[in-house]
């Protein structure tokens, strides 16, 4: 390699060779910015994602379901924390990231702007939304930025129970009374398409993807991940005896993949624009938690300061 080779080229070469980038390594400014944006959005999604499920914590229909759901929602707080920590290794400040979320400047996954009117939604979210998230997260375990990859490994390990938790709820409902079965089918109907949209726009309309793929931040395209998810999920729906709300869905014997119908993207963009049933409510809830917690955070800092001064005083 010649001396004239730019740092960017060397960086690319290094990444191409499947090496991980660590916090203090040189990196293109755009790589850093892309990561901070992606990781913090991912963190926000975990934190906002607590809300639709927390909605059922007080109403879980058995104590076993209640503790499982609580442990799951608590994990999401932990995952948000791991992700914010990973972004902090790039020089971002958690408080700044949180403020961007609260002001509406930062994005989070639109899926969490859908309401959870029924208990079956706890099943569908665990099964479909977490299923889709896992497809994405498994890929991210191999992302090129070390701290992000390590956070994802931890998250994937913990998430394995989340999807099982959700699917088990679906099994109980699908094998239950006619009303329960209807609840399950209704939840599948409502969550199926939004779950497919979680993977983002189709590859031809996903302008930022190419650079992210080149830097190996992203390792698979939106459409590839979506296809994996569909192939995995369709047989699981069949096992439940539920039908997927897509009349064009069919198995292609040649490609060995399922083909799906047209995705209604206008709905996706409507929710992104803020027109989902819960967009406002979710941000209000997060703002309230943050504002109501300010005096608590301040008091703890004030006490810590007093204590360290006392210690200094004692030592003197």
């Amino acid at each position: 390699m010649t001396k004239e080779t730019s740092l960017e080229d060397r960086f690319q070469h290094y990444v191409d060779a499947e090496n991980k980038i660590e916090p203090k390594d040189w990196m293109p400014e755009k790589y850093r910015k892309t990561l901070i944006r992606q990781i913090s959005q991912h963190g926000h999604s975990e934190v906002v994602g607590m809300l639709p499920e927390a909605n059922w914590l007080t109403r879980a229909p058995s104590l076993r379901r209640k503790v499982a759901l609580l442990a799951k929602v608590q994990d999401e707080a932990g995952h948000g924390l791991y992700l914010y920590s990973a972004a902090e290794t790039l020089g971002a400040d958690r408080m700044d990231m949180v403020k961007d979320l609260l002001s509406g400047k930062a994005k989070y996954s639109s899926i969490f702007n859908y309401p959870t009117p029924s208990w079956a939604d706890m099943g569908a979210i665990g099964w479909l939304v977490d299923g889709a998230a896992i497809a994405n997260q498994v890929m991210l375990c191999r992302t090129s930025y070390g701290p992000y990859a390590r956070a994802m490994v931890k998250i994937c390990k913990e998430e394995s129970f989340h999807q099982r938790q959700g699917y088990e709820i679906m099994i109980s409902l699908a094998n239950g009374t006619p009303t329960q079965r209807k609840m399950a089918q209704d939840a599948l109907n409502r969550w199926w398409w939004p779950s497919l949209m979680m993977f983002g726009p189709t590859d031809d309309l996903s302008p930022n993807s190419a650079q992210s793929m080149k830097w190996k931040i992203k390792r698979k395209s939106n459409d590839e991940l979506r296809q994996e998810f569909i192939d995995k999920t369709v047989p699981q729906a069949e096992y439940l005896g539920l039908s997927i709300p897509d009349k064009d869905l069919k198995w292609n014997e040649e490609t060995k993949h399922y083909e799906h119908g047209e995705i209604e993207w206008t709905e996706f963009y409507d929710v992104i624009k803020g027109n989902g049933k819960c967009n406002k409510q979710r941000l209000i809830a997060r703002n309230k938690a943050h504002d109501n917690g300010e005096w608590i955070r301040e008091a703890a800092n004030a006490y810590a300061k007093k204590q360290s001064e006392r210690k200094k005083h004692q030592a003197a």
Binding site: V47, M50, L51, L57, L70, Q74, A285, A289, G293, R297
Partner: peptide, 24 residues
């Protein structure tokens, strides 16, 4: 459990959920 998702800071949200899990 009513606090879950609404705590003053993530670390304490997690801490209180742990206590709720113990109680339950």
């Amino acid at each position: 459990v009513e606090w879950c998702g609404h705590g003053p800071v993530l670390e304490q949200d997690i801490a209180l959920s742990n206590i709720a899990l113990d109680q339950l």
